[in-house]
Design a protein around this nucleic acid. Structure first.
Lengths: 328, 328
DNA sequence: GTGAAAGCGCTAACAA
DNA sequence: TTGTTAGCGCTTTCAC
């Protein structure tokens, strides 16, 4: 690969001049500029981005740290982020943290060493302090992270409330909740939303909330247990779509018809919802938009702009499938 | 952030010495080494990876170029790759090509400019020539790419044959194929496998092969059409699991029971298969292993090793769900 | 408008 | 064993 020196030599100018046309500085004669451009093409010269990074102390790269890219929510986020970055000639580094604070911290350190310009992180575990001292632009995605760190997330609490209200208006008289892991803010908020709509109901009791841990295997067990304990159960609000799918399968196994005998509603709006039979009714997040917005914000932060809005909160929207009955 | 100079000054040694302990060269006194290590800790010094990259002409980074990370097959691949890289302190750059040769070429160029050490690519469109001239270690994943480029893939042809044979032995008497896009090697190979097992059958005719384009919407339409045209159809081999899910939904809509009246088998073995009702019978690829193997190979290539095997071919394994009947 | 030269932070000769 | 220095490829003062 040819360097800026080669171009300079071939074009009979100094490297400074080549650099100037590269960064299209105005102070360069049209004639020489043309000549330089010409030799650049001839030599198929591409500037060395690493050398540039070293000088500029930035790399046109941002990192996306997610718990696990296998969770179907995140690929769509990653896609959105990458699309936005790609337009600006930025590159995306992907990291899986497994919700492990140590891994998160390690990644954060690595990114700083590589002059990564900013990071978008999905975390509940990392301490705000750690992040704040890491002097690199950060956006919290999907889950807020204290007040000082800009975030992009959805209104989980009200989304959950709407889910429960839908079940009620579709005729459910006893509604359970299969929740995600404790300590994950979004799971906690959805659980709180459920409680807000049910705690005062005469039929409500604590063991209507069970843990499905955001996966379908544990959910299956939990749902079976739930149906055994509460033969009159006719509605389930699952904390995400994967768990909704698990609950629907459990209903099938247990012998309850969905949605006639048991209505199930999920949360997230991942593609899965339209692939199952029955399709899953869910509270859909604008997943792509979440990722795209986070990417735009981080780019603004990198450019040194003030954010117009430091905590962007999207609404979730009701998305009807066949796992709940129609509202009369 | 402190630099190697700061450490040198504070430890009262030269930068060379600091560099030596950093790269644990042996030629350094135990005493001074201890002292340097000490000040490194005190200053919380982390070497600047960009400067290192500039010198070494490598970045401890590899790129994974996939058509679209939203396709559920790829997150698992990406996870595997990242796991392997992470162990070696390598970083993963993720790129979405949309099967567009121009984007692929652009990414390849960008990666070279960033001293990315190697790339793992999933492509059918990129010309071998383009890749060969790009003097950067490359592994073709999921689809072979001529003989000169090392690859990691599965035996699609025989996997497809096995899928069809399973349908036959489960009692199917007329089997259709919903295929992936033409020009994508894996889709073509699976289609060939289907043909190999069916073309000689008395019931075979060309319009038993329809295109589902690897997505469930087109598949749904195609499957409905198929069932209309062939009322006696009792088996479908779908080119991937998404399409299998689409076919199963179509069967439900059309009023055919799965698997009693129509058996459906997919290909890939993504998580989706265990989330649907009925669960999808499929020919499962060792997805994680594919990614992990590709990552290991690219690392070997980067280290300058000869590959023991340039074309790694995994078998797919039959994974029983409920979308096909049991074999008597 | 153009060039010479310093320097981004690091590594690796080459000396001492 | 340790230090001095050139240089990785680029950008940007500062002169001219």
């Amino acid at each position: 690969m040819s360097t800026i020196r080669d171009v300079a030599k071939a074009a009979k100018v100094s490297v400074a001049t080549v650099s100037r046309v590269l960064n299209n500085s105005d102070k360069v004669n049209e004639e020489t500029k043309k000549r330089v451009l010409e030799t650049i093409r001839e030599l198929d010269y591409k500037p060395n981005e690493v050398a540039r990074s070293l000088f500029r102390k930035q790399s046109n790269t941002i990192a996306l740290i997610v718990p696990d890219i296998k969770n179907p929510f995140f690929p769509e986020v990653a896609r959105a982020v990458e699309d936005v970055l790609n337009e600006k000639e930025f590159t995306l580094i992907l990291c899986n943290s497994d919700e492990d604070p140590q891994k998160e911290q390690r990644y954060l350190d690595m990114m700083k060493q590589k002059y990564v310009d900013g990071v978008i992180i999905v975390t509940s575990t990392l301490q705000k302090k750690e992040i704040e001292k890491s002097d690199i632009p950060i956006i919290a995605l999907d889950r807020q992270l204290g007040n000082s760190i800009p975030s992009v997330s959805v209104d989980n609490f009200n989304g959950a409330r709407e889910a429960v209200r839908h079940l009620k208006s579709a005729g459910c008289r006893k509604i359970a909740h299969i929740r995600g892991p404790h300590g994950i803010v979004s799971a906690d908020d959805r659980s709180d939303g459920y409680l807000h709509e049910t705690a005062h109901e005469p039929w409500y009791c604590d063991d209507l909330i069970v843990s499905g841990n955001f996966n379908h295997v544990e959910t299956f067990e939990a749902a079976i247990e739930l149906m055994k304990r509460h033969p009159d159960l006719d509605g389930i609000f699952a904390g995400n779509d994967i768990m909704a799918a698990g609950a629907i399968k459990a209903a099938g196994t247990f012998g309850k018809k969905v949605p006639e005998e048991l209505a199930v509603i999920g949360f997230d709006g991942i593609d899965l919802c339209r692939l199952t039979n029955p399709e899953i009714t869910t509270m859909a997040q604008p997943i792509y938009e979440l990722g795209a917005t986070a990417a735009k914000l981080i780019l603004e932060l990198i450019e040194g702009k003030e954010l117009a809005e430091t905590h962007v909160l999207f609404d979730v929207t009701f998305s009807k499938g066949q796992s709940t009955k129609n509202v009369r």
